[in-house]
Design a binder for these strands. Structure first.
Length: 420
RNA sequence: GUGGGUGUAGCCUAAUGGUUAAGGCACCUGGUUGUGGCCCAGGAGACUGUGGGUUCAAAUCCCAUCACUCACCCCA
């Protein structure tokens, strides 16, 4: 029972987990840069209004999940619950709309939502985020989708498929919503109380309800895709054509809606097994009105947010191999004060030559130092004792074979480098 | 915010209500002069999550609380 514990919903990522994290982040960065995405880092907190405006009052994220605080200047600030809003603010504030279009941006970092933790859900969690700004065509949508697909495929995910739907545009969305409301008006006593609430706050969300009593109503609900306008229909058809062209699996999911208000046209998720009850490893879509809503020039956009913890959970459930932690190649063992002094000098010289070196500290028996060298998986142990010092040499033991030779101190670095 | 499950060393586990809470892994030290892995010996490490209650006696029974965990809501 330690006195201090990490805050609820946070994670300590220990050294043994770092290979997974490095691998995922490196893959994501590599793929993003291959496609011409440039990195942007935005603050971990923003004026609360940035999120409240873009994500939308009435969404759970804004209403009950934000880490909001007042700073000493009396400003209401909020830890970012997602990336898109802050990136859009930065786009506007830095005048990025004058750059060649489209602009492709990616970010990696922590996001925060105040929720009850469970498998695959944390209060601080990491996201990889990518956006394409200034392009309205479905070819931008598909590029975003391919970016995440290639990430998952490259990490060894099986049975990939997109969940795909359209949430229309300001022209057709109201039409559909009123149809949906009319449909639900026919079942006032059948639906769950959450859906009653949803119908006034965020009507599309009723489609996502999991309560058993609501399933028949949802099953008979009208499909958004039957009510989208001509432009939205064409956009969706083009996107499907690209996905077919690329041979990527997708499921048109009429019940797929997203919890953020800013989405228009395309919405998608990728689901994977291995994260408990959670399935989504990413979520994204198009948000053509968002930048204008935040006070910028009308600029279409499409983007995706990827949950890194969830990816790692899936990788672990699939036993995906990752590059291991680098081990020290050379272990410096020493006997006696004079030898330790020489070891201090050598450790520094080795590292200056890019040799990964672990120096034994203190005054310990050789046996104990060799045990440690074994535990640390060193390839070579350089042994410095009085005999060696007197002759200007070191005994070098190769741990894998047990072979041991004497090497002149002046030749040590060259000798080691030729063998590592 | 709601509901279920679980709390014994860093990790895993043991202890019919009855001595000083036991073992394994991991850690540290030693096993004759300066040589790893195996083995042997020893050591350190726990106010049994916390607070009440029942009892002659509580890790064990009861209550509360906190934490963790899973699920709901919702989402990455």
């Amino acid at each position: 029972m330690p006195r201090y514990r990490r805050p609820t919903g946070t994670l300590d990522i220990l050294p043994e987990d770092q290979p997974h994290w490095d691998h995922v982040r490196n893959r994501a960065r590599h793929l993003a840069e291959l496609a011409g995405f440039e990195r942007i880092d935005v603050p971990m907190f923003e004026a609360t209004e940035v999120f409240a405006r873009s994500i939308g009052a009435g969404t759970d994220t804004v209403d009950k999940e934000m880490y909001t605080f007042t700073d000493k200047g009396g400003h209401s600030l909020t830890l970012r619950p997602e990336f898109t809003a802050g990136v859009m603010r930065a786009f506007i504030e830095n005048g990025l709309h004058v750059r060649p279009r489209p602009l492709k941006l990616y970010s990696v970092g922590a996001t925060f939502r105040y929720e009850r933790p469970q498998a695959g859900r944390y209060r601080q969690f990491a996201q990889f985020n990518a956006e394409i700004l200034g392009e309205q065509g479905a070819d931008a949508d598909v590029e975003i989708m391919m970016l995440v697909w290639d990430l998952y495929a490259g990490l060894g995910f099986q049975d990939l498929a997109f969940q795909l739907n359209s949430t229309g545009c300001p022209q057709c969305k109201p039409v559909y919503v009123s149809r949906l409301e009319a449909h639900y008006a026919g079942y006032p006593d059948t639906i769950c109380k959450d859906c009653v609430r949803r119908l006034t706050l965020s009507p599309l969300r009723v489609l996502d309800c999991k309560a058993a009593q609501c399933q028949p109503v949802i099953g008979r609900a009208p499909h958004f895709l039957d009510y989208v306008c001509e432009e939205c229909a064409e956009h969706f058809a083009t996107l499907r054509d690209y996905l077919d062209l690329l041979g990527r699996e997708y499921v048109v999911n009429h019940r797929l809606v997203r919890g953020l208000d800013y989405y228009t046209k395309t919405v998608f998720e990728v689901w994977a097994a291995g994260i408990g009850a959670q399935a989504a490893v990413c979520g994204g879509g198009r948000y053509d009105g968002l930048i204008e809503l935040l006070g910028g020039p009308p600029t279409p956009g499409v983007g995706v947010g990827v949950g890194l913890e969830r990816i790692i959970l899936v990788m672990k459930s699939l036993n995906v191999p990752v590059p291991p932690l680098p081990a020290p190649r050379v272990f410096l063992a020493h006997l006696g004060t004079a030898a330790r002094r020489e070891a201090v000098r050598l450790a520094n010289a080795f590292r200056g030559e890019d040799l990964a070196t672990w120096m034994s500290f203190g005054d310990r028996r050789l046996r104990s130092q060799l045990r440690e060298a074994g535990k640390r998986s060193a390839d070579f142990v350089v042994i410095l004792g009085e005999d060696e010092l007197a002759q200007g040499v070191a005994s070098v033991k190769e741990m894998a074979t047990g072979d041991q030779v004497e090497v002149g101190l002046v030749n040590l670095i060259g000798w080691l480098k030729s063998r590592l």
